[in-house]
Design a protein around this nucleic acid. Structure first.
Lengths: 155, 155
DNA sequence: GTTTTAAATAATAATATTCTTATTTAAATT
DNA sequence: AATTTAAATAAGAATATTATTATTTAAAAC
């Protein structure tokens, strides 16, 4: 891998610091995956991230993208949203929040975190002996548009 | 499909009534998928359900299993738990609850539902205009056993 | 700056999951 | 009981996701 991508390397954000603090290595691939998510400012699939990394001429495999997204999700840096058409990923930004997904059109709406959640997590931790690393709450429903569009099927 | 599986058909439980009430058809495949989950008394993968249906000599495709599990999950009859190794499914029984999953060994522990969740769902409904059909909360962590087993890696 | 070592990667194989389209079927209507 | 119709299914193709293993690399120790 001669030649350099040095100019493209994401600055050491607090996110990277967080990663490093947990004892994980700071690989090119890992940095760039996070940078794609940061730049993108939008939710991306693993495949989309993979494509963008290739465009940056980074040597990367799809497996590496999936593996890192899994890790980043597990340690709470990234949030995964499960759609029927596949999963999408976003960086966890300032305010912790959850997602409401339309079962018809897959529209995603952010909703604020349940205020009682923190206490709930603490209780679960105490009761089970687990170290709780993260959580994922997804609500599923039908959005206004899709409800109105319905003419024939299960209202 | 001559010959009969009539003896095997699941009785019309409240779950089936619920399904029918929503306007969905009561197909052999759908009934038997639910019956496998009911009999199994344990969480099953789509593939395991498929295998058991074949053993019952039911004409069924894997796609049908996935499609029905998706529907049943969407309308709140079945709960899906996302593991790294794939998804598992269980019937929603009396008491609504959530799951805590070990990120190492995939042990699953049931935890009671967050008491504030109902109010939270109502708020989300009001604020967004969605019809909320169901939700999924999964906590991820490291169980006691796995934490103690750790010698080399990220504590 | 080498050496060492566990973690991370690439490549490819293997699974899991979803999509497409023609055919079948449950339920409603007659 | 026959007819009609939207919903559901089967089959197989297409994607998405994960596992395996040999090779590379970041970080630490020297």
């Amino acid at each position: 891998m001669a030649g350099g991508v040095e100019e493209n390397i994401m600055p050491e954000t607090k996110l990277l610091a967080h990663l490093k603090a947990k004892g994980y290595k700071l690989t090119q691939q890992r940095q760039q995956i996070m940078d794609v998510l940061l730049q993108g400012k939008t939710r991306l699939t693993a495949q989309e991230i993979f494509r963008q990394l290739k465009e940056r001429n980074l040597s990367v495999s799809l497996d590496t993208v999936y593996r890192n997204l899994r890790l980043l999700t597990a340690i709470g840096i990234v949030q995964q949203i499960s759609l029927q058409s596949g999963a999408v990923y976003e960086l966890v930004q300032e305010e912790h929040h959850h997602h409401l997904v339309c079962v018809d059109c897959e529209k995603i709406v952010c909703i604020s975190s349940c205020p009682a959640m923190q206490a709930y997590l603490k209780d679960a931790d105490d009761a089970t002996g687990f170290d709780i690393l993260g959580h994922n709450l997804e609500l599923y429903g039908r959005c206004d548009d899709c409800r109105n569009k319905k003419t024939n099927s299960h209202a």
